[in-house]
């Protein structure tokens, strides 16, 4: 059974003459335990797909199924939230500024019916590489990377099987991005998680995902595996264009190999 299956998904905003379709006829399926990327430029609809799955957008048609269960509208039951969690782009905006790390995590744990909260918070913090010292801090007392670790800990709290990652590292410095990407790889390996990650950075997608869908103006133009992308053999001209743009930017360093440590 696939972790996520999407068929003929159309997502729109507004009604009547103001109706704008952000996603049109998208289809993809993600096997359990896989890591799937969604790439495209701003406005291509990649985040919209994620938000429709998460139940943040009511106006969609088509079929979205998570672990075989078809979803309706924007209503999601507790079992869904237990299975599927989301990590947002900007850890400066996604954490409550007046809640401590402890409070953020215990709230989620309590909502999902866990009662051994104390022990679980300790474990979650250590799982994401934060020590106990961080437990009673407020977001403003954390760096960007530490905040994103807290956001990941919060997403992991209900012991989900699927993580929706919306540009999880694009607000971070490159050295911090490396730490978070390594953490996400480790967590997936340890827990057999399924990832659906949105990113505009082909390097990040290539690092974390095996398969990726390329979107343009609301449509998926191609689904290809990362190996094909790496060999620069996409079928669709738009994918090629995207690849060339992204590789072209790095040519300066590519002329010579990066130094080894």
């Amino acid at each position: 059974m696939n972790a996520i299956e999407i068929e003929n998904l159309t997502v729109w905003f507004g009604a009547g003459p103001d109706r704008a379709e952000a996603v049109r006829g998208a289809a993809l399926s993600i096997p359990r335990g896989a890591s799937f990327g969604l790439v495209g430029e701003s406005g291509s609809g990649k985040s919209t797909i994620l938000r429709a799955i998460a139940g943040l957008i009511p106006t969609w048609s088509g079929r979205i199924a998570v672990e075989g269960e078809s979803l309706q509208g924007a209503r999601r039951d507790r079992a869904f939230h237990r299975a599927v969690q989301m990590v947002f782009q900007d850890p400066y905006a996604s954490l409550h500024p007046r809640h401590t790390v402890d409070r953020m995590l215990s709230e989620v744990l309590w909502l999902h019916g866990f009662r051994d909260i104390d022990a679980r918070i300790e474990r979650l913090l250590s799982d994401v590489g934060l020590g106990r010292g961080f437990r009673f801090r407020y977001p403003h007392q954390l760096s960007g990377g530490q905040r994103q670790r807290v956001a990941i800990a919060r997403a992991l709290a209900p012991e989900p099987r699927i993580l929706l990652l919306d540009e999880p590292t694009s607000a971070l410095d490159v050295s911090v991005q490396a730490e978070i990407l390594n953490l996400l790889s480790d967590l997936r390996a340890e827990r057999g998680l399924t990832y659906l990650m949105v990113s505009h950075d082909l390097g990040v997608v290539g690092h974390l995902c095996q398969t990726t869908a390329v979107m343009r103006t609301g449509e998926i133009v191609e689904i290809l595996d990362v190996e094909t992308m790496r060999r620069l053999q996409p079928r669709h001209p738009y994918t090629r264009q995207l690849l060339e743009a992204s590789i072209g930017l790095n040519l300066g360093a590519r002329g010579a190999p990066a130094p080894a440590v």
């Binding site: 390097g203 790496r230 590519r254």
Partner: peptide
């Protein structure tokens, strides 16, 4: 400098783990 260069993921030169600075 070397750490910055090595910590960026590169599509064409994949690495199982990114170097952490």
């Amino acid at each position: 400098t070397i750490g910055l260069l090595n910590s960026a993921p590169d599509l064409l030169r994949p690495r199982p783990r990114l170097a952490v600075l």
